[in-house]
Simulated assay, not measured.
Amino acid sequence: MEETPGLPTPPPAPAPTEPVQPVASQPPQPAAPPPPRKTSTVLLLVVFGILLLAALGAGAFYLGQTSQPVPTPVPSPISFLPSPTPEAMMEDDLSNWQTYQVNGTPYAFKYPPEAVVSGAGDWTFFMINGATLQHMYSGNKGNQNLEQFVQNYQVWNQAPTQSPLQVDAKEQITINGILGYKVKSGVQTYYFLQYDQTGEVVVFHYETVDSATEAIFIQIISTLEFVESQVGGSEEQGADLGNIGYTLPATWKAEIQGDSLLLTADGGGYFSIKVYNYPGTGRREYFCQVTGDICVPETYFTVMNIGNISGYKADGLDNSGGGPVYFGAKGDKFYIINSYSPPAPSEFANTYQQVLDSFVF
Rank of each mutant, 00 (worst) to 15 (best):
T4F: 11
G6H: 06
P8T: 07
T9C: 14
P19D: 06
V23E: 13
A24E: 12
A32H: 08
P33E: 04
P33F: 08
T39Q: 12
T41P: 04
V42K: 04
L44M: 13
V46A: 12
A55R: 00
S67P: 00
Q68V: 12
P73F: 15
P77F: 10
S79L: 14
S83G: 08
M90T: 14
D93M: 02
Q98H: 15
G104N: 01
V117C: 05
G119H: 08
D122C: 05
T132A: 08
N140W: 11
G142Q: 07
A159Y: 11
K170I: 15
T174V: 13
G177N: 06
I178D: 09
I178K: 01
K182P: 02
Q188D: 13
Y195A: 11
Y195I: 04
D196Q: 14
Q197F: 13
V201W: 12
D210A: 10
S211C: 03
F217E: 01
I221M: 03
F226C: 02
V227L: 08
D240A: 15
I244G: 03
T247W: 05
D259Q: 09
T264H: 14
G269A: 05
F271P: 01
K274S: 15
N277D: 15
R284M: 08
C295P: 01
G307P: 03
N308P: 01
S310H: 07
G311P: 04
A314Y: 03
G316F: 05
N319D: 10
G321A: 10
G322C: 05
Y335A: 00
I337V: 12
I337L: 12
N338P: 01
Y340R: 00
Y340C: 06
S341N: 10
E347A: 06
Q353C: 09
Q353V: 13
